[in-house]
């Protein structure tokens, strides 16, 4: 399975990959983007099976990316990894088509719980 990790922090992208391994999901192939706009380009080119995406990023936010994808009927699986922890944010994410919201800081358990349901 090909998974795109979109986050403006390089260290966070590495941490997400490490945590995916710890959660038993290290066997996938990973590609990375540094913001939403780069992620959109990579999704068109690389056709990942799932997107793990930060919410607040420069250029294009994670929510703007998700809405852009769904607006063009792209149903690529999508989950947020974000500091957004309010019920409002969670509702907005689900309404836009996100499969889950993992809040930062996270543990391997929170990844396993979310990813086991969708992969």
């Amino acid at each position: 399975m090909k998974i795109l990790i979109a986050d403006d922090s390089r260290a966070m992208r590495l941490m997400i990959r490490k945590t995916m391994r710890e959660a038993g999901h290290g066997g996938h192939s990973f590609i990375e983007a540094g913001d939403g706009a780069e992620a959109l380009t990579m999704i068109e080119r690389e056709k990942p099976d799932f997107v793990l995406c930060d919410w607040n990023m420069p250029n294009m936010s994670g929510m703007e990316l998700l809405l852009a994808l769904r607006g063009r009927n792209d149903t690529t699986g999508f989950g947020f990894i974000t500091t957004e922890c309010s019920e409002d944010a969670r509702r907005d994410a689900e309404a836009a088509g996100a499969r889950f919201v993992i809040t930062k800081p996270f543990t391997a358990d929170s990844f396993a719980h979310a990813m086991d349901k969708v992969l």
């Binding site: 922090s9 260290a11 607040n56 500091t83 922890c85 309010s86 409002d88 930062k104």
Partner: peptide, 20 residues
């Protein structure tokens, strides 16, 4: 990213949205 994650100091599920 540490400053970004520290937004969680102010956030809670039933609270307002807070971002860095």
């Amino acid at each position: 990213e540490i400053m970004n994650i520290s937004s969680r100091l102010f956030g809670r599920p039933d609270g307002p949205r807070v971002r860095f």
